[in-house]
């Protein structure tokens, strides 16, 4: 018997990435734009989804996948807000959604009935970042109340997002949020992603976010956008 060295160089995320590609292809075929929403617990993920559904009413049909450790309150909230359909994925303690979990959830939804698929990931700024779900856009949501140091403490999610939403702007003067410090770190990690400041409570400032989504939906209908 001999011992032999075999070069591999493969990411442990490889199998997940492949499953994610299959989801992307499915969404492309159905003409659906998929958004993966990442944030800590309580940052306002469900609030942003309900605001988005209302803002797009009459122009885009929204389906939702709600990832959570347990429970289904958020699914009820988005259905009440006018989501065409919604499905709950409980990870049973798992800290993130994986592409395989989303693929199974999509079996319960009719992709043909949506224009936009919003996936609310498990409330966690760390783990979900590593798992591609086959989304067309990854959106990082952070609230002013969490503090201006979030990009320094959780750099990966900011580095790997296509857009960043700074929520709870109505509270910004109450929580000593230093915009300069926040933007310095965000720009070091991600020079290009748009940052939208708004409040899901008052609805203020969400126009830029909704316009950005509309542009993504429009480029899809025009038949170009992939990835």
């Amino acid at each position: 018997m001999t011992v032999q060295r075999v070069k591999v160089v493969r990411s442990l995320f490889h199998a997940n990435d492949r499953a994610a590609e299959a989801i992307r292809a499915r969404c492309d075929a159905a003409g659906v734009v998929a958004v993966n929403l990442l944030a800590g617990p309580g940052a306002g993920k469900t609030s942003l989804i309900t605001r988005t559904i209302a803002a797009l009413a009459g122009t885009a049909r929204v389906g939702v996948v709600e990832g959570d450790i347990a429970g289904s309150v958020d699914t009820e909230r988005v259905l009440a807000a006018g989501a065409v359909d919604a499905v709950q994925v409980n990870t049973g303690g798992g800290c993130h959604l994986e592409a395989g979990m989303l693929a199974r959830a999509l079996e319960e939804l009719d992709l043909g009935a949506f224009d936009l698929l919003m996936v609310e990931n498990v409330g966690n700024l760390i783990c979900p970042t590593h798992w591609d779900l086959g989304e067309h856009a990854r959106v990082c949501l952070v609230s002013a109340a969490e503090g201006d140091d979030k990009p320094v403490k959780y750099p990966d999610v900011f580095a790997r997002s296509d857009a960043i939403v700074l929520n709870k702007i109505d509270l910004i003067d109450l929580v000593d949020f230093d915009r300069a410090r926040f933007y310095e770190a965000v720009r070091a990690l991600n020079p290009d992603a748009p940052v939208f400041e708004g409040s899901c409570r008052t609805g203020a400032g969400l126009g830029g976010w909704v316009d950005w989504l509309r542009a993504r939906l429009a480029s899809r209908v025009a038949g170009g956008e992939v990835g």
Binding site: Q4, V8, R10, S11, H130, A159, A185, R187, A188, L189
Partner: peptide, 27 residues
């Protein structure tokens, strides 16, 4: 994220989140 030498803010090259199987030793 400031550079320890000059204090300017650089850009991220590797966010240090990947896990790779580099190689195996097999019998």
């Amino acid at each position: 994220f400031r550079c320890p030498r000059c204090g300017t803010v650089g850009g991220v090259v590797d966010d240090g989140t990947d896990v790779l199987i580099e190689s195996l030793e097999i019998e």
